[in-house]
Amino acid sequence: MKIWIYIALILTVIPLQTTLLHHVTILDVRPDLGLVVVCLVGFFGGELDGLLIGFILGWSQDLMSAGELWVNVVSKGGAGFVAGLAGRHLAHITPMVLLIGLGAISCLSSLIFVYSMKTSDWDLMWHAFHSKVLIQAVLDAFIGAGAYWLFARRWAPDPFLQQDRL
């Protein structure tokens, strides 16, 4: 069952990201649905699931992007693994922890893009940080937290642990 959910996610997230999501940009920035999905898979499914789905989603995203073919592979794979570790070790995931955690993962993931620009122009890096990285982190954090809240209510892995969560 789980494998089919993952296949469905891979086949819908990237087309959604590339076709429909550009209608809902904020300041010309879209949320990264791939990253949100990878983090949720990591939270619910563990590090291995997060790592593998992150790797495949990142690879698919790189194939549909003009950038170098490693940035999303690395950032999404890493994000899924970190989310899996967090999901397993954090006993109480409060809304604030979740928002900050997702925002931080999104920031780190975007900083890999900034690194891939191979530039020493601080002005360009600062522009990228405040005009893209921060806005995307806020969007990812809110969408991810909302989706986590929905999924945690429906598929709580351990009701005892979940009662104090979102």
């Binding site: 086949l11 990237i14 087309p15 076709t19 698919s60 549909m64 073919l69």
Partner: peptide
Amino acid sequence: LQFLGGPLGQVLSVPLEAFSSLD
């Protein structure tokens, strides 16, 4: 990765076309 991604890209192009028609 680009070479091995060929079949993956082909599989992805099917839902991509469907979503694009919807859009």
